[in-house]
Design a binder for these strands. Sequence first.
RNA 1: GGGCGGUUAGCUCAGUUGGCUAGAGCGCGUCUUUGACGUAGACGAGGUCACAGGUUCGACUCCUGUAUCGCCCACCA
Length: 876
Amino acid sequence: MKFASSYEPGEYESDIYAAWEASGIFAPTVSTVPVDDDGNGVDDRLEENHPDTYSIVMPPPNANGNLHIGHGLTIALEDSLVRYYRLRGASTWYIPGADHAGFETWVVYERNLEAQGHTRFEFDRNELYARVWDFVAEQRGNMELQLRALGASCSWDDLTFTLDENVIDRVYTTFEKMWNDGMIYRGEKLVNFCPKHQTAFADIEVEHKDEKGTLWDIAYDDIIVSTTRPETLFGDVAVAVNPEDKRYKDRIGKTVHLPLTDREIPIIADEHADPEYGTGAVKITPAHDFDDFEVGERHNLERIQVISESGKMINVPEKYYGLTTAECRKQVLKDLEEQGLLRGEKKIVHSVAHCYKCGTVLEPTLKEQWFVDVEKLAKVAIEHLENDEIKFHPESKKKVLINYLGNLKDWNISRQIPWGIAIPMFHQVDYESSDEPDWVFDRRTNLKEIEKAGVRYVRDEDTFDTWFSSSHWPIVCTDWTEENFNPYYPLNVMETGADILFAWVARMIMMGLYVTGEVPFKDVYLHGLVLDAHGQKMSKSKGNVINPMDLVTKYGSDAFRLGILRGRSAGMNQAFSENSVISGRNLCNKLWNISRFIQSLVDEDRGEESEVSIPKPDYTTENMGEDWICREINDCLEQIEKDMKNYRFAEAVDALYQTIWDKYADWFLESQKIYKNVPLLKKTLETLLIALHPFAPFVTEAIWQNLSWTDGFIATAKWPARLKYDPISAEGFENIRIIVSETRGTLQALGGTNNGKKYGLLYDNDSLVQDNQMLIKVLSKVPTINSLNGTPRGLRLALANHELYLDAPEKVIKEYKETLTDRVLSVGRELDALNLRLRNPNYVEKAPAHLVKETQNQIKEKEKLIAHLKQQIEYI
RNA sequence: GGGCGGUUAGCUCAGUUGGCUAGAGCGCGUCUUUGACGUAGACGAGGUCACAGGUUCGACUCCUGUAUCGCCCACCA
C-alpha cells in the first residue's frame, strides 16, 4: 500500500526536496541574457507573447548562522508566493543569498579569538580578513540545509554571497560614481563609537535605553551649569545660554573660568540652551556631545578631544590623564566638591545610546569617516514613493518611510572592522610632495599601497557599512547591468521584516534609483515580529525562543508553514504557538487520508471499467452534492487568487482549510459514500492539491507522487481552471445541508444517547427529501427514512420549508417541549427585529432594494417557522 | 515632543468601498469504534466588538474625544 494510515512527513520531505532540486525546476525558465528570436535586434521579451516573470530575492540569512523563527516566517511567505506564481505559469526566480553579516560575524569571531588568548591587534587587516573567511567557510552550509528543509524553492545555482566578486564590483562602481558626483565626502564628525568593538555605527544601529543618571550643578564662576557628564568638562570650549534668557543677557560675550583648569571660556548665546531646564546654562563640549558639536559648528568653536577611542582621558591635566571616564568622573566630582564648586545634584532618567550588540555605552567620538550626502538620494526616493511606484503592505509604512527619508542625516559608511568590503580609497603618504589629490579612488583594495602618477598612496583600513552593500541587493542578485534589458528587475516584491524598513528597504530604494533609475521592486511586503504564545518578544534571556527546525522535525515542514502563516497580517507583530503548527499537521494528515480514500475508490472503480481504451472521460456532475462542491471549490480558488494578489496569506490558507475540511471531507466525501463519481473525485482532489501546494509543498507532492493517475511534479503543475457545474443544483444542496444539520441537532437535543440509531425520519409531500432520501439518511445517520402516509406523527423538525418528522415516542417529545418553546421565543425576537427594520420608512426608502426584499423574505421564513413550531407545541 | 499601530469569545486572531443571526483555530462541555482520518466525526456553550459622543435608514466598520497597551523617531545639559 502506498498510503499509510497517517502522513509521516519525515519519511518524505528530504527525498522530495532532493528530487525537485535534481530536476532543476526551481531555475527560472526565461534567461537574463537578451533573446532575439526573430533577429530584428530587439529583445523579444519586451513583447507580450513570452511568459511572465516573477522575481524575488531572499533577505540573505547570516552565512554561518542558523535560521531563527523570523527566517521561518520569511520563507513561508516568500516561498508561498513563488510556488503560487510558478503554478500560474510564470518564470519564477527566487534568488537565495548568504550574508557575511559584517559586524555580527566579526563579534563572534573576535570572541573566539579572545577565548584563544589573542587580540585583533596582533594581525593586520588582510590576515584578519582571511582568517574570518576561513572561519565562515567552516561554519557555512547549515542555514542552506535549513532553507531546504523549509521547502524554499529557490534557484540554488544563483545563490549570492554578500562578498561575491560581482557584489564588490557593483558596490565599487556605485561608490566611484558617487565619488565623481561629489556625494561622498570625508568629514570629521562625531560618530557613535563602541569602545569595546572599536568601531563606529550609523545612527540607525544605535539602541537608546532610558537609564537613571545624575544631573550635577557646577559653578563656572557665578554661572551654574548642569551636566550629566562632569568628566568632559576638560573639553568645554564655551557656556551657552538662551539669547532670550534675561538672567544671563548681560553676560553674553564675557568669559568664565573653567574649573580645575586655568582656561577662560566664552559665554555664548544659542537656542540650544533651554531656559526651563536646569539652570538654563549649558557647558559646550563639541568633541563629545552631538548637540554641542552642532553648537560648535554654529559658533566656530574649537573641538578638544579629551576621551580616547579606548575610553581613556587624554589632553587633560596630568592628574586625570589616562583615567577611564568613570574614574575621571569620580575624581572630578571629588575635586569640585573640595573647591566648593559642586552646587547640587539631582537624580534623573535620561536616554543613553548603547551598542546594540554588547550593550556598552557608546561614546560620541570625533572621527574622520566617509559620509554619503543623502539629500539628493532621499529626495529622489520620496518623489518616486509619492508617485506610487511602490505598493506597500501594510500601506501605512509608506508614509512612515517618506517621513523618515525627509529627515535623513548624512550616512556614515565607514566601519573599523576588518570583516567586510574594503573601502576603495587611498590617501597620499607625503602630503607635501605633490599637487595630486589627498584621496584617490582605486579598485585594487587587495593592495595596501599603490602608486599613481608617481605618488604613493596607502589604502584606508576601514570597510563599508553592510547596509551600503546590502542596498544593492536587488541589483546584484538579478545581474542587472547598464547594457541589457532584464526581465527580473525591478523585483515583483521585496518581502522582509518591518524592523529593517529604514535600514534596508529605504536604502535599497535610494540605491536602486541612483544606480538603475528605477525603483528596485514593485511591491513591499513587511512582516512583523513572531512573538511567543503570550505575545511576548522572544529572547534568549526569557527562554521563550522557538526554534523553527525543532517544529519542522516534530510536525513537518508543511505544518510549520501553515501554522506560522495563520492569523498573520502584514506589518503586525503576532503571537505564535505550537498549537497552530499542530493544527497544520492535522490538515496535512486530513488531506492524506482524503487522498487515501479517493485512491481506494479509484482502485475499485478500475476493476469495473471495461478494458476497451476509450478517450479519457472528462468529469461531469450528476447530483446536487457534486455541483455544490464544484461551486465551493471555485469560490475557494477565486478567494486564493484575490488573497495572493493582496498578500493576504492567512486568509488564503483559511479558505483552503475550510474548503478541504469542512466542505470537501465533511460533506462532499461523505455524500460520495453513496454516489461515487470517480472522475469528479479525481478532478476535485487534483484541484485542491494544487491549490494547497504553495503553502504545503511537501504533503501535496507526496500525495501527488502516490496517486496512481498523476504525472510529473505537482510543483510544476498548472494552476487549476474553474470547474463546471449547475448553479441551481449546487444551491439545492444547501437545503440538504440544512435538513441534515437540523436532524442531527434535534437528535442530540432530545436527550438520551445514540438517538441517531433509534429514530427514523418521516417526510410528507416533499420532492427534495424524496429524491435524496438515501443521502439524507446516511448523512444524518438515521436508521430509516420513509414517506409519511396518513396523519403526521413524531416530532416535527423546525424547518420552515420542509415537512419532516423524527419518529420519536411521545414521552421523549414531551421532554423536548421546553426547548421548542425557547426556540419560538428566540425566533420571535429575531422576527421583531426584522419587522422593526421594515417598519422604518427611511430604511425602505433609502436602503438598496435587494436588502429590503431580503428582509421581507426573512420575515416570511421566520413567520412560517414560528407557525410550525407552535403547531408542534400544541400537538404535544 | 512628533508619528504609527492595537483594544472583537477563556487564549491567539480574522472581519477588504457601512448592510444576512459578528467568524476561525485552540481550549471547554455532551455524544459517536460510521467504506479514509480519534492527528477523527456530530452537536453545543461562550461576545454590551475598550469607553463616551457624533454622522447615517443602518456603525465592529466612518468622524471626534477619552482610557489603556505597544512600537518607531527626535530630545533630554
